[in-house]
Amino acid sequence: MATFATSDQLLVVIDPVARRMDGESVRIAKDVLSAGSASMKVCLPEGPEEFARVLTRRGSRRPVVIGDDLSLIRAVSLLHRRRELTDCALSVVPVGGVLSLARSLGLPTGAVAAARAVLDGTERRLDLLVDDSDGVVLGALRIPPVVSHQAAEADTGLDAAVAAGVTARPWLRTCQSLVRTLVPVRPLRPAPLDPGPGPSRLRVEVDGEMLVDLDQPVEAVSVTPGGSGAAAVEVRPASVGAEASPLLARGRRVTVSGADFRYRADATVAGPVRRRTWTVWEGALGLTLPER
């Protein structure tokens, strides 16, 4: 672990979505960081490509990302693909609408507290899950995703829009707000509940040992980096009558295969795939967190 001095040179990268959604929190965070740092460079990228270019040209400056969970994932994924996570301590000030991942990692979600943690916090090494397509998972992986099929498609569409820079167009947000204002609100009968995805037939292997096979339908699978180079795996079998007990395991390498399946990794939905292997990379991410 490393404790940072407030005189560190900082590269502050502010996500465009954060600037539009909560400009006041962004301003407060900038003021706190500026007051505590001897040298601070602020960058305002307008899209993912510019975001990546700024981050890769950071030089000796410590990167600070102001943005939501998608910004955090984008930064970690980029640094991982360039194999630069080992020598880079990432700092994050969570600002935006989706911050559940940031909270789960221990990041403060208040602008002042988060900015102070950047200046006075400690670098802690966290485990990552890395799949066989070089994708990363910081928090939880769930199969099937904890959303209905329709919601999963909507999430995937949103992620694609963010990646394409569509959300950087202020006129789109203005039109959406106008439509919501003009459409009258009428009382509606409750919509029928979406039953969500049914049981899946999946083979789950942990470090080469079979945890569940295709002949046993499962309701859900979750994989979470548990620290010390191992992931916590939980499989919930489909129950008939009395609720079936979950199957639990810990291991470094988890392989899931079977019929086409989708999975939720942090804030995004991926798939469908027929086989995917996740491996724990111990201490791969250095994240600046508040002193305990």
Rank of each mutant, 00 (worst) to 15 (best):
L107I: 12
G110W: 00
G121F: 14
T109F: 05
D120M: 03
V95M: 01
G96F: 08
R124E: 13
L107T: 07
G110N: 13
L119H: 06
P94W: 11
L119G: 12
D120I: 06
V112C: 00
A113I: 02
S91P: 11
R116P: 07
A111E: 07
A89T: 08
L101Q: 10
V98W: 08
G110K: 11
L105V: 05
A117T: 15
L105F: 03
D120P: 00
A111C: 10
L90A: 00
G96K: 04
G106H: 14
P94N: 12
R124Q: 10
E123F: 00
V93W: 03
L99W: 09
L101D: 10
T122Y: 00
S104R: 14
L107R: 06
V98N: 07
V112Y: 00
S104H: 07
V98G: 00
L90M: 05
V92L: 14
G96T: 10
V92F: 03
R124F: 03
R116T: 11
L119V: 08
A89M: 09
G96D: 04
L119K: 03
A114M: 08
L101S: 03
V95G: 03
V95W: 07
G97S: 15
G110C: 06
P108K: 14
V112R: 09
G121H: 09
A89E: 13
V93M: 05
A111D: 06
V112K: 07
V92S: 01
T109V: 15
L99F: 06
V92Y: 01
T109C: 15
V92K: 03
V118Y: 13
L90P: 09
T109L: 13
S104G: 12
V118N: 07
E123V: 15
L119F: 04
G96W: 07
L107D: 04
S100P: 00
D120W: 09
L99M: 07
L99C: 03
A114F: 04
V98K: 12
T109A: 02
L105A: 02
G121L: 12
L101E: 09
S100Y: 07
S100M: 08
L105H: 03
A111T: 13
L90C: 04
E123R: 13
R103G: 01
L105R: 01
R124A: 08
P108L: 11
S104E: 11
E123M: 06
V112H: 01
L99N: 09
P108N: 12
G97V: 13
V93T: 11
A102R: 02
R116V: 02
S91G: 12
G96E: 03
D120K: 10
